[in-house]
């Protein structure tokens, strides 16, 4: 599904990613953890195709294609989805319009016709249920006046509708209380499948109690310095990040 090799990326001449290697197979859930400033958000932005990052070395292969050569929208149309840490509010664009435009953009790439209004609404309603959102949210501006939890649920709603092959969840747990975290996690868990890969980027271990990963990686100073299973996350929770520095895998101590 996704193969990242020796990825180096800089922002304004400052190197943030310093040689990331990561392979994600279909159906796997990976968690990438790390302290602030480790490069977590840079990694998700680079994968989703945000402008402003300079790739100095390395390759990213997604379903056999060179991902870094594709525009952001081309990646989305091919099934890459980024759930944002800070979803933007866009007054004037209704949620339902966004959902329809996004779904039709993906369908167009797949060679499918636009869904008609009734089929679309039926589909959206079933997805709303998944994230426990009221239909009223469809007719508001994108995230306009939404609470933190509602914004995150709206991201998962978009994910549920677009059915991506690779979902990158950037700090999806930030700003959520326990109830909201549970709703969001239930939504994500319902979307786990053998042909969908999920990369969760998080600072805290607590999300991993709800969405249990197959693999856990520690990102520090722009590199993956340690990989393991979910037990690694618990160890991090207990000991903090500082012990990783100087570990044999860590080259940045």
């Amino acid at each position: 599904m996704l193969e990242i090799k020796n990825l180096h990326a800089s922002v304004d001449g400052k190197e943030i990613l310093r040689g990331i290697n990561l392979t994600v197979n279909a159906g796997e859930v990976h968690a990438i953890m790390g302290p602030n400033g480790a490069g977590k958000s840079t990694l998700s932005n680079v994968l989703a195709g945000r402008d402003g990052y300079e790739i100095t070395q390395g390759t990213v292969t997604y379903k056999g294609e060179k991902l870094l050569e594709l525009k952001a929208e081309e990646r989305a149309q091919r099934g890459v989805f980024l759930a944002f840490q800070y979803p933007v509010e866009i007054p004037g664009v209704s949620n339902i319009y966004l959902l329809k435009a996004a779904l039709n953009a993906v369908r167009k790439y797949q060679g499918l016709d636009d869904l008609d209004a009734i089929d679309f609404l039926t589909l959206v309603r079933s997805k709303l249920e998944l994230v426990k959102m009221d239909e009223e949210f469809l007719h508001r501006g994108v995230n306009e006046g939404f609470s933190g939890g509602e914004k995150k649920r709206n991201e998962i709603l978009q994910m549920a509708l677009l059915e991506p092959s690779l979902a990158i969840l950037d700090e999806t747990d930030s700003g959520l209380d326990i109830d909201a975290m549970k709703t969001v996690s239930d939504g994500v868990n319902a979307l786990r499948s053998s042909d969908r890969s999920i990369v969760m980027i998080t600072h805290y271990q607590r999300l991993l109690d709800y969405i249990v990963p197959d693999f856990v990686h520690v990102l520090s100073n722009g590199q993956i310095v340690k990989s393991g299973d979910k037990e690694l996350a618990k160890e991090l929770e207990a000991k903090g990040y500082s012990w990783i520095h100087g570990a044999p895998e860590g080259q940045t101590a």
């Binding site: 525009k71 929208e73 989305a76 980024l82 933007v88 004037g92 435009a101 953009a105 978009q158 677009l162």
Partner: peptide, 20 residues
């Protein structure tokens, strides 16, 4: 970037934001 990350091409995204 948000709209493009949802699959809208750049021209459509700019147009939509202008309308908004």
């Amino acid at each position: 970037f948000f709209l493009r990350s949802r699959g809208l091409d750049e021209v459509s995204a700019r147009s939509l934001l202008t309308y908004a």
